[in-house]
Amino acid sequence: MTSKKIKEIIAEMFKIKIEEVVPQKRLVEDFGADSLRKVECIMKIEEVFSIEISDDEAKRLVTIEDIINYVERKIGVVN
C-alpha cells in the first residue's frame, strides 16, 4: 500500500507511467529530477504520510527503493 502510493506520487510528479517507477530507478539520474523537483517530491511524501524528512535524510534517498524503505520504517510498517 505504502509502496503503491509512493509510486503513484512519483509517477504523477514526473509525468510517467506507474510501471516505470521500479525500485532500482533513481530520481535524479533516471527521472531527471532537479533539486526543486526532488524537494517537491519529498514534501508531497511528507504531506501524504504525515511524516517529516530532514534535509540530511532526504539526501540519502536516491532510489525509489530508498524512499519506500525509509517511509515504511518511519510509519512503522512491518514486512
Binding site: S35, L36, K38, V39, E40, M43, D55
Partner: peptide, 9 residues
C-alpha cells in the same frame, strides 16, 4: 511551485 518548496530546495 510553492514558496516553501523554493526555500527548502
Amino acid at each position: 511551485t510553492t514558496e516553501k518548496t523554493i526555500e527548502r530546495a
